[in-house]
Design a protein around this nucleic acid. Structure first.
Length: 373
RNA sequence: GGGGACGUGGUGUAGCCUGGUCAACAUGUCAGAUUGUCGAUCUGAAGAUCGCGAGUUCAAAUCUCGUCGUCCCCG
């Protein structure tokens, strides 16, 4: 359950506290993505230093490597990776959709070939819940069927039907096997692609089953930003206020600022670290591509308003050199700055909601932040 | 002194024998994409009057001669 503390008077933005067995999380929050039990280029110590409340990891990747026997021996993902704060694990539904080869989906489950070595695997909703039980993550996502984009109506209907079917089985298996000491939360995922009635139908079906939180999935698959926000606008009004809402895989800073205003509480995306590795940094004025020649002799920091250690100490000219020569330190520094930027943004968002001034914050942020067309 | 090989975008090469979209590929450079991960990948752009000069020809990076340069072998 989400304890709501603040409701912005002029937008749907809200702030609250989400209780997990590993501590309380202040919403809205952003989860740095640590697919392979590591947020790429950023250490746990870094994350603590920049006050990350939790992180996200991945069932699909960890199941394939190092495998569940190893995780079991370590007593779960937290011990394995040395992270004591909460973890949310994604189910693998999206990864099977986006990474695996030769996937074959039936109502029973999904057969796929590993993107690593081509080996064949079979995921069922029950297996995924079990795997996430071994991982011991605090919030877990059920196996869903992520529809592609663009998507024919018939296929979207099918993915809604199957996602609901799997959600029911996931919930049942979860309740039957949930151990009191773990106290995991299981989220429901709404699908429905770009169809309003299917989105609503999916939301109603998922709500009927009942979960500890609700996610909007099937976004960040190539659809337009407009379509993504339509999915939010269709589904959000149906979601109960006292449960956390999670917009999966989103988004760019301006998208997060907008989505919070639409009543979303939870976000994750690989963008800060991926863009960091590719040399793109985020600032309040928009993104900057540090590899660009204009930075070759720039002695200033990425963002003069940023208080992260990279901006305190290192110049754009030096960072560009590191990126240009392929030095790992460059990837790490920009990744650090970007994750720091996202986390600071979430704190600022929360503060604005607390003051009941979210619409002003939103207007101010979106005014300064240049979005590339 | 004698003989041989080679000179094509920043770099490394292909094309030459069998003249006919005046030029390809890799890499680098420049710019952009990247949304439940990707040190991946993709998309654009700029960049060579083919060492230089002359000749043959309707037409030369390509054939001939000269010249300059680099490298190798022999003395």
């Amino acid at each position: 359950m989400l304890t709501l503390q603040y409701q912005d008077p002029n937008t749907k933005a809200r702030a609250g506290v989400l209780k997990t067995s590993r501590g309380e999380l202040l919403t809205p929050f952003f989860m740095p993505v640590g697919t392979n039990a590591t947020v790429k280029g950023v250490s746990n110590e870094d994350l603590l230093e920049m006050n990350s409340q939790l992180l996200l990891s991945n069932t699909y990747h960890l199941y394939l490597r190092p495998g569940m026997e190893v995780i079991k021996k370590f007593g779960g993902l937290h011990n394995f990776m040395g992270w004591e704060k909460p973890i949310l694990t994604d189910s693998g539904g999206f990864q099977v959709f986006s990474l695996a080869k030769l996937r074959k989906i039936t109502d029973e489950g999904v057969t796929f070939q590993s993107h690593i070595d081509g080996s064949r695997h079979f995921f069922t909703p029950e297996l995924v819940v079990d795997v996430e039980g071994i991982l011991g993550s605090d919030m877990i996502m059920p196996l869903d069927e992520c529809a592609p984009y663009p998507c024919e109506r018939k296929m979207a209907e099918e993915s809604v039907r199957r996602t609901t079917l799997w959600a029911r089985r996931s919930r049942k298996h979860f309740l039957a096997n949930q151990r009191e000491e773990k106290k995991q939360m299981l989220f429901g995922i709404v699908q429905g692609a770009t169809f309003e009635d299917l989105r609503r139908q999916s939301a109603e079906e998922i709500l009927n089953i009942g979960f500890d939180g609700y996610a909007i999935g099937g976004v960040s698959v190539g659809e337009t930003v407009k379509e993504m926000f339509e999915a939010v606008e269709w589904v959000e009004p149906l979601l109960p206020r006292e449960y956390p809402r999670y917009l999966m895989g989103i988004g760019l800073p301006d998208q997060i600022v907008r989505a919070v205003g639409e009543g979303i509480d939870m976000f994750d995306t690989c963008i800060p670290t991926r863009f960091g590795r590719h040399g793109t940094a985020f600032t309040r004025r928009g993104r900057v591509i540090l590899r660009n020649a204009e930075f070759v002799d720039n002695e200033g920091p990425i963002d003069s308003e940023c208080d992260c250690f990279v901006c305190q100490k290192y110049s754009c000219g030096y960072l560009r050199h590191l990126l240009n020569t392929g030095e790992i330190l460059g990837l790490r520094f920009v990744s650090y700055h970007n994750v720091h930027f996202y986390l600071k943004l979430m704190r600022d968002i929360r503060q604005a909601i607390e003051k009941g001034r979210y619409s002003e914050f939103q207007k101010d942020f979106l005014g300064k932040y240049k979005v590339k067309e």
